Structures are given as structure tokens and as C-alpha cells.
Simulated scan of single mutants.
Amino acid sequence: MPNNEPKPSDGTGKKRTVPHTNNSWATYVYFQVDFTDEKEKLSSYCTSLEPIPEQHISLSRTVYLKHRQLEPFVTSVRTAIQNTKPFDISFAQTACLTNDENTRSFLTLEIGNGYNQLLECMKEVDKVMQEYKQPTFYNPPRFHTSIGWALDKDTVTSIEIPQSSLAYVTSRVFYLSRLYIKQGHLIHHIDLQ
């Protein structure tokens, strides 16, 4: 009999919060952000956190689809955002956000400029989620990229980033022109028109 109990997935203390089941593909929709320079600026203040290797901005929760739903889901998202044009974003401030299970807290940078465009994309993705009877995104959404995480919220809230370093990051403009969908180990991309 298989043991479906959540188990630690690595040596960091991070636990799997959803038991593994066959034919259940963890799926989410997001934009990637090239954050290499900015990460170097912030890394020395975040040594107490587990780093997050790639920066992204989520437009959906992680949902679980069957294999037969994977391709139609990508097609539905592509159709939903077909009239979306590329746009610029920038970050406004840091925030500490905690996951739904209260197992990890994240140091994040929240979106300033570009929020409304992300909101429009999210609404289109939400329609697809409803079509597939999946949960929609948070309301109100707090669009962000995560820099690092810790099991203890106090570890995150104790981090102080000097205004000069934060100003460098918040003054940068990022151009979003490609949407991504991750389904298990598969990654699809959709270019904005």
C-alpha cells in the first residue's frame, strides 16, 4: 500500500504539503524576471535565507491537472491572453509573505508599475482556472517576486535592506513579453503579441 504522507523533499526542512499522486501534474502560470544584477545587490543582506534560484511573478496558484488536461490547458491560456501586449514592470517595496500552509515565509519584492497589466493577465488566467474547476488567484492579488525563504517568519522580518540598495532595485524596469506555464517538469511559453 503506497504511503501518501507528505515527506520532506530536501535537507532544508521544506516539506511537501500535497501528497504525491499518480497522474497529478502541479501546474502554475507565471512571468520570469531576469534578476541577476539585482540579486547580487541584495544577496549580502539575505544570507540567513534559503535563496530562490529564479525570479518569477505568479499569476496563478499551483493547481493539479490530469495528463489529458495539460495540452488543452496551455491552449486555453494561449487563447485567453492572445490580445495581451508586452509591458514594463518595476518593483516598489519589500514584504514578508507566508504560504497558505504557514510552513514557509518569503522575502518578496512587490510590484509597483505594471500592476494593472498583471491584474488583467491574471483575470484571463482566472477564467481558464474556472473552466478547469481549479481555484483562482488570491484576492486581492499581491504580485511579487520572492528573493529567499525561511521556515521562521522572524528570520524574514528581521532582514534590513539599506535604502540605497533597495532604490537601485526599485529604479529598474523589466520588460515582460513571454508568459510561462509549468506543468510538472514540462515548461511551456507563450509570447505576448
Rank of each mutant, 00 (worst) to 15 (best):
M1V: 13
P2S: 08
S9C: 12
S9N: 07
T12W: 02
T12R: 09
K14F: 08
K15F: 12
H20K: 10
T21C: 09
N22D: 15
N22I: 11
A26H: 04
A26N: 08
T27A: 07
Y28P: 02
V29Q: 00
V29S: 01
V29A: 03
Y30N: 01
Y30E: 02
Q32N: 14
D34P: 01
T36M: 08
D37A: 15
K39W: 06
K39C: 04
K39N: 12
E40R: 13
S44C: 10
Y45K: 08
Y45N: 05
C46V: 06
C46D: 00
T47I: 04
H56Y: 11
I57F: 05
S60K: 06
L65Q: 07
L65A: 06
K66W: 01
R68H: 13
R68A: 13
E71V: 15
F73P: 02
F73H: 05
V74H: 06
V74D: 05
T75G: 13
T75D: 15
S76L: 06
V77H: 02
V77W: 01
V77Q: 00
V77E: 03
V77I: 15
R78V: 02
T79Q: 13
T79P: 02
A80S: 12
I81F: 03
K85R: 10
F87I: 07
F87V: 07
F87W: 10
D88K: 11
F91I: 03
A92C: 10
T94S: 11
C96I: 05
C96F: 07
C96E: 05
L97Q: 04
T98P: 07
T98G: 08
D100I: 09
T103N: 09
F106P: 00
F106V: 00
E110S: 07
G112D: 10
G112W: 02
G112T: 06
G112C: 09
N113W: 04
N113V: 12
N113E: 11
N116S: 13
Q117C: 10
Q117G: 03
L119W: 03
E120L: 10
M122H: 03
E124S: 10
V125N: 00
V125A: 04
D126E: 05
K127T: 08
M129K: 04
Q130E: 13
Q130G: 09
E131K: 11
Q134Y: 04
P135W: 08
T136N: 04
F137R: 03
F137M: 10
Y138D: 12
N139T: 14
P141G: 08
P141T: 06
R142G: 08
H144Y: 02
H144D: 01
T145A: 02
T145G: 00
S146H: 02
I147A: 02
A150N: 11
L151H: 08
L151R: 07
D154T: 14
T155S: 13
T157E: 15
S158K: 12
I159A: 07
E160F: 11
I161T: 04
S164N: 12
S165V: 01
L166V: 08
A167C: 09
Y168N: 06
T170C: 14
R172K: 14
F174N: 00
Y175V: 03
Y175M: 07
L176Q: 06
K182E: 15
K182V: 11
Q183M: 15
H189T: 15
I190R: 00
L192K: 05
L192I: 14
L192D: 09
Q193A: 13
